[in-house]
C-alpha cells in the first residue's frame, strides 16, 4: 500500500511539474518590455528596424524591430513599449532594411500622428510611395500608422544582422509624434509583407510577437 501511494504521488508530482514547466517555459514566454525615456515634452521612444535579427537570435534570418537609445546604439530585442497615458509620445525609428512595398497602398499615408505628418530624414511628409515602404509602425487601436521608407536596394553599406551601427550603415530615419489615450494594452504591427519566404510574405516574423509585432503598454 505504501509503495503504491508513493508511486502514485510521485507520478502525480511529475506530471504537475511537467505541466508547470510547459506553462512557464513555453506559454508565458513573451518578449520583454522597454520603457520610453521621459523628456520635458513627452516620452521618447527610439526604435530600429533591421533586415535580420542578431546572429545569436533564435531566428537570425527574420526581420525585426529593436529598441535603441537616442544615439541608435544600445540595442535591446524587446517589442513591448511602455509609455505614459494621455501624453505625447515622440518616436524615432532608424530603418536599416530595403523596401518591399505595401499590399494595401492606402497605408503609405501616415494617420493618427500629430498633424497627420511624419518626418523622413528631416523632411516633413504625409505619405510615401507605397513601393518604397520597407516597414510600417501601426497601432490600429489608436489609429496610428506611419510608413517607413526603405534604403535603396543597391546601398553599398547595407546592414546585415542586428545590431547596426547608425554611423556607418545605410538607414532612413523617421520621426513622428502621437498622443496616447487611456491606460491599457494596445498592440502594434507592421503592414508591409516583409516575412520573406512565407506565403504572401506575411508569416514568420509577421506572425510572431517579438519581431514585427508587439504591444504598447500605456500606463
Amino acid at each position: 500500500m505504501a509503495r503504491r501511494t508513493v508511486l502514485t504521488l510521485s507520478a502525480t508530482l511529475l506530471v504537475i511539474a511537467a505541466i508547470a514547466a510547459y506553462v512557464f517555459l513555453y506559454l508565458t514566454n513573451v518578449p520583454g518590455s522597454a520603457t520610453a525615456a521621459q523628456t520635458a515634452n513627452g516620452a521618447q521612444l527610439n526604435l530600429a528596424t533591421v533586415p535580420a535579427a542578431a546572429t545569436n537570435d533564435p531566428h537570425p534570418t527574420w526581420v525585426s524591430y529593436y529598441v535603441t537609445n537616442g544615439q541608435g546604439t544600445g540595442w535591446q530585442h524587446d517589442t513591448t513599449f511602455v509609455v505614459p497615458a494621455h501624453s505625447l509620445v515622440h518616436v524615432t525609428i532608424r530603418q536599416y532594411d530595403s523596401s518591399s512595398g505595401l499590399r494595401n497602398p492606402f497605408i503609405s499615408q501616415a494617420t493618427g500622428t500629430v498633424g497627420g505628418t511624419f518626418t523622413l530624414d528631416g523632411k516633413t511628409m504625409q505619405a510615401i510611395n507605397p513601393d518604397l515602404a520597407s516597414h510600417v509602425f501601426a497601432i490600429p487601436q489608436l489609429g496610428v500608422s506611419v510608413p517607413l521608407a526603405g534604403i535603396p536596394d543597391n546601398a553599398k553599406n547595407a546592414c546585415g544582422n542586428a545590431p547596426c551601427d547608425p554611423s556607418t550603415t545605410a538607414h532612413t530615419t523617421t520621426t513622428f509624434t502621437f498622443r496616447t489615450g487611456a491606460k491599457g494594452l494596445y498592440r502594434w504591427q507592421c503592414f508591409v509583407p516583409c516575412g520573406a519566404g512565407y506565403v504572401l510574405d506575411f508569416g514568420g516574423p509577421m506572425q510572431t510577437v517579438g519581431y514585427m509585432d508587439g504591444f504598447l503598454k500605456v500606463v
Binding site: Q109, A127, V199, L200
Partner: peptide, 26 residues
C-alpha cells in the same frame, strides 16, 4: 481631403485585388 495623399497611390477600384507577392515570395 484628408486621405488625398494616399488616394493618389491607390490602385484603381476593382472588385478583387491580387497584390504581390501572390504565393510564396522567393
Amino acid at each position: 481631403k484628408t486621405y488625398a495623399p494616399a488616394a493618389k497611390n491607390l490602385t484603381p477600384y476593382s472588385k478583387t485585388y491580387f497584390p504581390s507577392p501572390l504565393g510564396r515570395g522567393a
